[in-house]
Structure formats: C-alpha cells, structure tokens
Design a protein around this nucleic acid. Structure first.
Length: 809
RNA sequence: GGCUCUGUGGCGGAACGGUAGACGCGGCGGACUCAAAAUCCGCUCUCUUCGGAGGUGCCAGUUCGAGUCUGGCCAGAGCUACCA
C-alpha cells in the first residue's frame, strides 16, 4: 500500500501541474535487481529474472488500475541489459576519470552464505539469513570515490531549500565534517620498520592530558606484533569476533592489551607513553590510532579507569579552582581554561587548538586537517542478480576494463542456486575469458554492483530512455533537475546521497549539466494498519476478523476472540496488509486515492482503516448524485438572486483555497475545502428555483469536477460528461480560474475582545476604518454591558479580524 | 549518548501571533421504511447558578492577545551511534 500512496501523491501533483499548463514528465521504472529475487530463487526455485518480471507485471497492473497518469513509453527496468549495459559504460567513464578505486577493505563476511553482508544485514553479530557468526574479513573491493565530493555534497545541501530540513541535517551528520590535526608520534624504538604512528585528533589542545596511545585491532602494527606475541594475536582474534551490532557495541567494555611499545610526546621532552591495542578504536576512521586524553574524552576515561592509567585535567571549567577540580566518572569535554598545558595554559580550548596546530606544523610533525565521517562507497557485491562489474582480471595485466565495444557484459541465464556463494563464480564458463590486453586467459570480475548504483542515475535515463548514449545531454538539460521528488524517509541518506554524488560525478565528466538531481523533495509517511492475533498467538489477516453483536472482534470462522494490536507498518509477517487490487476492485481507484489524500497530511504516517475507505466511497457516490441532478442550463441571468450569488462566491473562493492547498502539498485540507463545497452545493438544491441558480449550480459542478480531477480523475470525467456530454475531457481542460470579484467578500465578522477574551462579534464592511470598527464594537450591547464602570485604556484594532479593548478600574 | 521531529476532542486532523477544534471518521437523536440498508436533517470539548468559567503534555516568560514565539521540564517517534 505504501507504493500506492507514494504514486498517488505524485499523480496529484502531475495532473495538477498539467492542468496549469506545465509540460510534465511523469515516468515509471523498476528498481529490479537485488536480493529478494535471489532469495525467491533459493527458496522457490524460480529464476530471479522470471520472478522479477512477474512482479513487475503485477505492480504495473496495480498502478494502471489506480489511474496514474504515467508516461509508459519511458518505462524500463534496471535489470534490462539496455539499462545495465549503459551503467557499465558509465562505470568505465568513472574509472577513466579516477573516480574508482580497487582496494582491500574489511567487510562483514558470512561464512555459510559465502557473501559480504551490509552492516544492516548483520543482526547481533550474525548473518540475518544464515544465522552464522559474522567474521571480519579483508577483501578486494571496488570503491567509488564519493569522499572526493564530501565538501561539495555538504555545501550543496544549502541550496536545497525545497528539501525537508531534517533530511539535510541527516545528510550533513552522515558526511560528518570535522576539523582537527594529524600528527606523528615517534616510537622510542622502531618495530618492524615502523618508527612513527600517525594519529588524527579533533582535540590537539588536550595533548598535555595524554596518558596513552591506542591503535585498532586491525592496525598494521597490531598485525606485526601478533606474529610473535600469542597474547596479542588472541586479543585481536577476539576483537574480530566481536559483532558490530548495536547490542555488542553498547555493552562492550573498554578492553585493551599493552603492546610494551612506547611513543614520545610531541611537545614534552623525554616523556613517553604506552601503546595499547584497544577494542574501541576504529580502523576505518582517521588513521586507526588515537592518543588518549582521559580527562577530556569519556571513552578514554573509561579505558584509563579500567587499566589504571593516569588522568590529567587540562581544561578547567568556569567556576572551578585548579586545586579542587577533580575528574570523577565524567570526562569534561566542554569549555573552560587550559591548565597543566605548558604554553597553552590560560587559553580557551579553541585558541589552544590553533596554537597547538601551529606548533605541530612548526616542528614538522603534524598539520591541521579536515576529516570526514563519510567513507568511500564500496560497490562490490558477491551476488548474481545485479549489474556485472565490467572488469577482467589478468595475471599479467591486473584489472583490465572490458572494452566499450564488448559491452554489455550480460548476466548468464543458466545459473544454479543449489549451493552457497555467488552463482556467477560457480558458473562453468561465464568467467573464463581472454584478457582484452594481452590475450592470455583471464577471469571476469564475478562481483556485481550494489543496487544503489542502479538507482543513482535512473532519473537521467528517464529524460531520454531510448538514447544510444547512457545519458542524452540535451534531454537532461531540458528536464533536470527533477522538480518534485517523492519518496520515503528511509531514503534520506543512502539513496539520496548516492544520487547526489552520481550527479556531481556525472557533471564532472560532462554527462550532465546540473550538480543536484532533485530540486524539491517530499518525504511521505508510511502506511500502517492494525494487526490481529488469534488466541493461539498466530497472526490473522484483516479480512479474517469480524465484529460480533457486542462489538467484540472475533475470527470469522472459528469465532475465537481476537486481540487487536496498535497500527504498525504493513508487513507480510504481521499479516496486517491490505491488497490494493482488492480495494480497487471493491471500491474503485478514486475511492482509494481520495482516502489516501483525505486522511492526514502526506508527510505523516497514515493508518489504513476500513471505515475511512467506506467514508471516502460514500463521498464519491454523493458527488455523483449531486451532479446528476444538474443539467446544462448554463445561461447566466441578469438579475441574480442572493442565493445564486452566494453559491457563485463559494465556488470561486473554493477554487482559490483548493489551488493554494494543492500548491503546498496540503492535500488533506484541499479535501476538506471540497467537502465544504459539496455541502454548499447540496444546500443550494433547496433554492433551486431562485433566479440564476441553474447557472450558479452548473458553474459550481463544473468547477467541482475540475477541482477533484487531480485526486479522483475517473469520477471527474463522469461528472463532466453528466453535465455536458459535448464538453472536452477534464484532462484536456485548464485548471479553473477564480474570479477575484467573486472571491472578494462584502462583509467581515470581527471578533471583539475585552482584555483578550472574546465577548462579541460584529459584522462590518471589509477594510472599514478603525474608528468605525471601534465605534461599532463599543456600542455592541454585550460589550456595553461589560464595559460599565470600566475605563478603556487601550484599543487594539487588527483590520478585518479583531478588536481588543484593554480596560482599567 | 548525539542530532532531529512530534505532543490539540473518542479518532485522523484544521487554525498569516488575532473567534481553538474547520473538514472527515465514530457516536447520539430524528425523518423516510412494515422493518432494515442506503439516504436526508439535527446534536456531539468540559463545567455552569445560563451571566459565564476552564481547556491545545507540564512550568515559567515575552505580548493588548500564545496551540503558534522564548527558556526549562515530561512523554513519544525517527535517524545515528565507541567517528577520537
């Protein structure tokens, strides 16, 4: 149901903008590669391609029955060779432009499934599918150099003023720019050709509070030490077994092992500190080594307490004295004055930071650097159902790009899923090819791309889906950036960041002329539903549950009592799903669309309820009846009755407010205004004989048809044809225009307050002079009564809205 | 732990700092009907001595006036997480 909501919202915008005369590109495609297809293959023996095609057929049918105004001529799926082949050629362009690296990286390795797992696929240290304990393993992987664009990706966020600020905030946090210093700590004695250790820190100001240096278990020095020291080897092995899961991280104690090696302090002559291997130091942030200042960093403090290392306060908080200040259980990482810090004493941490960096640079042992939390994007996946990475590995020539003329590298159809691992790797012939360089026998890369690659440029392809080139520059110059992108908040970081990176990278190599893909972003909420449990605790489908005479929920055949649980995201495992096809079948697409739009603001989660759908359905029937009674007698009359004029004013005011609501994505309030309009039109039936009412009702109904058209396109056409069979289709008509003369009001109701409390209302001509309004307010009977014996000391008048009388005595 | 967001009737939710609760759902009452369904009409925040009084998570503040702005709490949600 989530996708139905998503595309309904988009369709309203598309239809509305089209009626306003815009040229709208509203395409549809399929993000078709990925794990679900492979899992289905393993579980049910269907081929991933067949399974995918079948799913696309089903979903396309649903979308078409929803009446989405999509341009199906632009449809494609990412698993089409005509799409992924072009993606391969883009990759080769990236490679040529130096945007691709191949390097060793630590990965989560599932020893049963023989595959790399993403972090989110590791649950409590075990593979989400196999349940095997996940190992950290070093593998050669392909990386896209997204970090080259870190600054641009951060800066670009400022220009995205039509994005939700929280998404921008999330991306900024993810990119994680920090400023600090990188410095080298010299070892007192070199070990295994290592004479110094580089360390990144954001707090060079606290260097005088140092009490140890710690390196990650995966650090090169640790590996070298492990060769001759079994205790260290055991400790490293233990760290690698430790999961990366939340629980593991949260409950893990700070642990370490002293290497026996020591480093010199950069500033203090003859001072040396131990090097520890610690479980809380991350290899892939900074340099994989830290200096520990326990007084200023909570983690360092916990580590120091565990191993009885010294704690030297270096920042004195305001209001404390140097003699009394002690570090207890909490490190002090806030503001204050530097102490125990030689040439930094008396400075603020900010100033001290600058001074320390200057000294490091002068001594030529360090420098100020900017560091990023963002990592390069590993795109290798040991999977079949994805886009093959177009590389051939040759023993002599190394990794050789597949020549462009040989693209696409097609996935073989004849694969088996009868054993763990990557079917491409098991295939008897596929990977054996000759090196394009030297002609000797070589091997294809058997990894495929992360599917986020597929979805990082599809919007460019939609602009010219038949083009020979992957991206048609003229077409993208015309259409991009996307004016309005609609998606779930779950894409706030990954998909949206990767797409932004791709756009900047493609711009750099000339494929695109824009540097941001999506000008406007709207994040819609998820669709939820109650879920139901039978007496034995099994999940029940919504249509298995009925209400008995007493209103108790019961199973429809067994009669057992059913427990209702609070609404949650629809999921197959909880069985709290509703089938869009069944809803459309029972009520029609317009009812589904109307309910989706009316329930609540589209950026919030919506609860799918049967009564809500039924209410929407009733309204569709009511609209039809309302219009069926109105014939095309559209001539205006010279002398219009008050009733007719009032209806016409309502019509034009409704046009104005609905237009405004649609512009601001307030679909639920647009719906409310249309309900009010329909109520007014019903009311007008009572004075059907009044002069000019035929025309007024016809005008109203005609406007109503066009106003609901973006939301209920089918009913809109029915109503339009009922009113005037010879009229052009609503989709061919313009958006209704509000007549300013009819929108204007002839009187306003002004609230009269005394001391800010509402005491009366008065009716006045709009824009009346202040003195007239105040005179009328003060002579209103109820106000006069309340003012008795009081003196007015101040009169507030807000034109057309309110009068507030401030009294004394 | 960090960042962000959200707290308004029985429910979903309206409300440029200016009449809190629009509109819908649900509920109650009535009309129509032999009856029901459908439909139509009315009522639906609380208290009230019928003058009013109180009310938007809690406590302060700014203002003639605060659901809206500021500060501090409380609760819930999302993201992120040993990022040095």
């Amino acid at each position: 149901m989530g996708h139905v909501r998503n595309y309904t919202l988009g369709d309203v915008v598309a239809r509305y903008k089209r009626a306003r005369g815009f040229d709208v590109l509203h395409p549809m495609g399929w993000d078709a590669f990925g794990l679900p297809a492979e899992n289905a293959a393993r579980e049910r023996g269907t081929h991933p391609a067949a399974w995918t095609r079948q799913n696309i057929e089903i979903m396309r049918g649903e979308l078409q029955r929803m009446g989405l105004s999509l341009d199906w001529s632009r449809e494609f799926a990412t698993c089409d060779p005509s799409y992924y082949g072009l993606q391969q050629s883009l990759f080769l362009d990236f490679l040529k432009a130096g945007l691709v690296d191949r390097r060793e990286a630590w990965v989560n390795w599932d020893p049963i499934d023989h595959t790399v797992l993403a972090n989110e696929q590791v649950i409590d240290g075990r593979g989400w599918r196999s349940g095997a304990l996940v190992e950290k393993k070093k593998l050669s992987q392909w990386f896209l150099r997204i970090t080259d664009f870190a600054q641009e990706l951060l800066d670009g966020l400022d220009s995205l003023d039509r994005w939700p600020s929280r998404v921008r905030q999330m991306q900024a946090n993810w990119i994680g720019r920090s400023e600090g210093a990188e410095l080298n700590f010299a070892l007192t004695e070199p070990f295994a050709n290592i004479s110094s250790l580089p360390v990144y820190t954001t707090r060079p100001d606290t260097l005088f509070g140092m009490s140890f240096l710690a390196i990650a278990a995966e650090h090169g020095l640790a590996a070298a030490l492990a060769e001759t020291n079994p205790a260290i080897a055991a400790f490293i092995a233990e760290c690698q077994r430790m999961g990366t899961s939340e629980v593991a991280v949260e409950t893990a104690e700070k642990r370490g092992i002293d290497t026996g090696l020591r480093v010199k302090h950069p500033f203090i002559e003859n001072a040396t500190y131990p090097i520890w291997i610690a479980n809380f130091v991350l290899m892939d942030y900074g340099t994989g080594a830290i200096f520990g200042c326990p007084s200023g960093d909570q983690r360092d403090l916990e580590f120091a307490r565990a191993y009885d290392l010294s704690v030297i306060p270096v920042v004195l908080p305001a209001g404390e004295t140097e003699a009394d200040f002690k570090i207890g259980k909490r490190a002090h990482d806030g503001a204050g004055t530097m102490i125990n810090s030689d040439f930094l004493n008396g400075l603020t941490p900010e100033e001290a930071k600058k001074r320390a960096i200057a000294r490091l640079e002068k001594l030529d042992i360090g420098r100020g650097v900017v560091n990023w939390r963002l990592r390069d994007w590993g795109v290798s996946r040991q999977r079949y159902w994805g886009c093959p990475i177009p590389i051939i590995h040759c023993d002599d020539c190394g990794a050789v790009p597949v020549p462009v003329a040989d693209l696409p590298v097609l996935l073989p159809d004849d694969v088996t899923f009868d054993r763990p691992g990557n079917p491409l790797d098991h295939h008897p012939t596929w990977k054996h090819v000759n090196c394009p360089n030297c002609g000797k026998s070589a091997r294809r890369e058997t990894d495929t791309f992360d599917t986020f690659v597929d979805s990082s440029w599809y919007f460019s392809r939609f602009c010219a889906p038949q083009a020979i080139q992957p991206i048609d520059r003229a077409a993208t110059d015309r259409w991009l950036p996307v004016d309005q992108y609609i998606g779930g908040i779950e894409h706030a970081i990954l998909h949206l960041l990767y797409s932004r990176f791709f756009t900047k990278a493609l711009a750099k190599i000339g494929h695109l002329g824009v540097t941001e893909p999506f000008k406007g972003l709207f994040t819609q909420g998820i669709v939820t539903h109650e879920s139901y449990k039978g007496e034995d605790g099994r999940w029940l489908y919504p249509d298995e549950v009925i209400r008995d005479d007493a209103g108790q929920p019961r199973h429809h055949t067994t009669g057992e009592l059913v427990t209702i649980l609070r609404p949650e995201k629809m999921s197959k495992s909880r069985r709290n799903t509703v089938d869009p096809g069944a809803i459309i079948g029972a009520y029609g697409a317009d009812t589904a669309r109307w309910f989706i739009l009316s329930d609540n603001p589209p950026d919030r989660d919506m609860e799918w309820t049967e009564s809500g759908v039924a209410g929407a359905y009733r309204f569709t029937q009511r609209l039809y009846r309302l219009v069926a009674n109105i014939a095309d007698r559209s001539k205006a009359v010279a002398a219009e009755s008050n009733a007719a004029l009032a209806l016409r004013q309502t019509t034009h005011r409704t046009i104005a407010v609905v237009t405004e609501a649609l512009e601001s994505f307030s679909f639920n309030t647009a719906v409310a205004r249309i309900y009010e309009f329909a109520n007014a039109l019903s009311e007008a039936e009572k004075s059907a004989e009044a002069a000019g009412m035929d025309h007024a009702r016809f005008e109203a109904a005609s406007a109503l048809a066009r106003l609901i058209a973006p939301m209920m396109p089918h009913l809109a056409e029915e109503m339009n044809a009922l009113l005037d069979i010879s009229a052009p289709l609503v989709v061919a008509q313009n958006w209704p225009e509000a007549d300013p003369a009819l929108v204007a009001v002839s009187s306003v109701i002004i609230a009269v307050q005394i001391m800010g409390k509402l005491r009366a209302t008065i009716t006045m001509p709009p824009d009346s002079a202040a003195e007239d309004v105040l005179r009328a307010a003060e002579s209103e009977p109820n106000i006069q009564r309340l003012l008795e014996g009081k003196r007015i000391v101040k009169r507030i008048h807000v034109p057309n809205r309110i009068v507030n009388l401030v009294t004394a005595g």
